[in-house]
Design a protein around this nucleic acid. Structure first.
Length: 290
DNA sequence: CTCACATCCTGGATGC
DNA sequence: TGCATCCAGGATGTGA
């Protein structure tokens, strides 16, 4: 499921096919994803040049020359497949293949974009928890979607002091606090488990009760795990694939997520346990995470 | 306000 | 084998 590193990987894959290029054609195969497409969605995209492809939290943002930004959220099962038109083509760092004849025909291929790269981009989302919309670029940060989103964990503003500030007085378990997009943008279930494991902090510990001495390694672990995952090209756990269509491989690097019953990878004699917190699976080592 | 939980959706895995 | 149930999880809304 796409968390910050996977979304960043998709963004990187989309960039050469979109940035600096004109969107020549858009097709929507249904009226909505998680939310309805905005009025005149196709009309407001076709003929527009994409100035930048950036990311905020788990959203991909394509700024258009019309003053609007195409906002894409992959939800849990959203994928972007990027193909070259005509012949295989090297775009940026990636070699894009020509779309197979079946591309765009799957029943969950909900949106198809064509650009003058030339490229064909297919958005597939079988669970339809993703969304696409258009917002005013100048007021994007005030939009309902972004208004309450916290800081980027890979930005310079994210440090021990920030973490201490947002966790202070919190009675929720640290696991739940780190998942809260209003505090830190982009973490999801997997990377929260991984970061807490690396920092040896129990997911059950109340957020406000963690000493300053332990918050420094936690902040470092969050940054490190996200950077490692981006470097590995994102995870393709279960039903997610990166924009190029090539599978990433970070799931092979998970130290604790999905390892219930298996030995702790930090060298302690403990066994990884799975518990449910706020309705979500948490994997941790009860022996070394305290 | 803060936190826990149900809800949306689908298909793969599991259980009987 | 076939059918029913569970489960995954991001964001949001509801209710305690």
């Amino acid at each position: 499921m796409p968390e910050l590193p996977e979304v960043e990987t998709v963004r990187l894959g989309l960039q050469p096919a979109m940035e600096g290029h004109v969107i020549t054609r858009v097709q929507t195969r249904r009226g909505d994803l998680r939310i309805p497409f905005p009025k005149d969605f196709v009309k407001r995209l076709e003929g527009r040049k994409v100035r930048h492809v950036r990311r905020r939290a788990k959203y991909i943002l394509a700024d258009l020359d019309s003053g609007e930004t195409l906002v894409i959220h992959l939800g849990m099962s959203g994928r972007m497949s990027v193909y070259s038109e005509g012949k295989p083509r090297k775009l940026g760092h990636y070699l894009y293949d020509v779309a197979p004849a079946t591309a765009g025909t799957d029943k969950h291929d909900h949106v198809v974009f064509e650009t003058d790269a030339p490229a064909k981009i297919i958005f597939n989302d079988h669970r339809r928890f993703g969304l696409m919309t258009l917002v005013d670029t100048a007021h994007l940060e005030d939009d309902k979607l972004f208004r309450d989103v916290g800081i980027e964990p890979l930005s310079d503003s994210f440090n021990t002091a920030y973490l201490a500030g947002v966790l202070e007085g919190k009675r929720a378990p640290i696991k739940a606090a780190l998942l809260d997009q209003r505090l830190i943008a982009g973490l999801g279930n997997i990377y929260v488990c991984e970061a807490l494991f690396r920092a040896k902090i129990s997911p059950k510990r109340l957020a406000g009760s963690i000493s300053r001495e332990r918050l420094a390694p936690l902040a470092a672990a969050i940054r490190k795990v996200l950077k490692d995952a981006i470097a590995a090209g994102g995870s393709t756990l279960r039903d997610h694939a990166q924009a190029t269509g090539d599978p990433g491989n970070f799931q092979h690097h998970f130290l604790v997520y999905g390892r219930e019953g298996k030995p702790c990878k930090l060298g302690c004699p403990g066994t990884v346990k799975r518990i449910v917190q706020s309705g979500r699976s948490t994997f941790y080592c009860p022996k070394c995470q305290t």
